[in-house]
């Protein structure tokens, strides 16, 4: 279980769009990492408070609810960017190159479109929550506020898939792009597994010391 294939995302878009894209990529990973760590902190703090102060943190549950929405919808954009959405590719993999390329263009375009549709409907949903003025019972925050990530995440994901479709249309280098940055095939993972096993073998020899490979 390791990081995404591309450690640093470098946008393939030109000029200012590229900068925006790079910024979005950074923002997504920051939200993901901080969201997960805050969730751990929040949950542990609740236990600590219950034992030391004899009082649970009543906002704890609601904070986690906010974080989980944030992580999920920031994460789907990030996953689209890195071609990590789960798919059943058995038939697809068996097709010849040109058929796969056409199929991938169709898949990416339809997926992007569905994401835009969901985005549009979610704006309606968030707006409805804004109108009824529903609030979180303990924190008192308006509920629409915690769902604001939903249309944003869906829009970013939709854009990623459309860019993938365009990339596959415009690029003819014998590769098929799962996302703007990642090409088809699982070879990289195979390599990583081999690497992992070497690493394991090494660690086993000297369990107390820090392995040399894992420096900063």
């Amino acid at each position: 279980m390791s990081d995404s294939p591309t450690q640093e995302h470098r946008s393939s878009l030109p000029g200012i769009l590229g900068h925006i894209d790079n910024f979005l990529a950074k923002a997504e990973s920051l939200i993901l990492a901080l969201g997960v760590l805050l969730m751990a902190l929040n949950t542990v703090a609740n236990v600590v408070s219950r034992f030391t102060l004899g009082e649970s943190l009543h906002f704890s549950e609601e904070v986690n609810r906010i974080l989980i929405v944030m992580i999920t919808f920031a994460g789907i954009g990030y996953a689209a960017r890195h071609g990590r959405h789960i798919r059943m590719s058995a038939i697809y993999d068996a097709l010849p190159y040109s058929a796969r390329r056409v199929l991938m263009i169709i898949i990416a375009a339809i997926t992007g479109t569905i994401m835009f549709l969901l985005c549009y409907w979610s704006i309606g949903y968030v707006h409805g929550n804004l109108r009824t003025g529903r609030v979180l019972p303990t924190l008192g925050y308006p509920i629409w506020f915690i769902y604001i990530w939903v249309p944003i995440g869906l829009a970013v994901t939709g854009i990623q898939y459309w860019m993938t479709a365009i990339k596959n249309i415009t690029t003819r280098d014998g590769e098929i792009y799962l996302s703007t940055a990642v090409t088809d095939g699982y070879d990289e993972e195979e390599e990583m597994l081999a690497e992992l096993q070497d690493e394991l073998a090494e660690k086993q020899d000297k369990p107390g010391t820090r392995s040399q490979q894992e420096k900063d």
């Binding site: 219950r50 649970s56 549950e61 019972p137 303990t138």
Partner: peptide, 27 residues
Amino acid sequence: GKNIRTMTNPLLSETYRAFGASPTPLP
């Protein structure tokens, strides 16, 4: 000192605090 489970609601929590217990929200 008793942890009494309540629904996530500020007034219910206040009730059990008033009764002397520690209100504990739990799904």
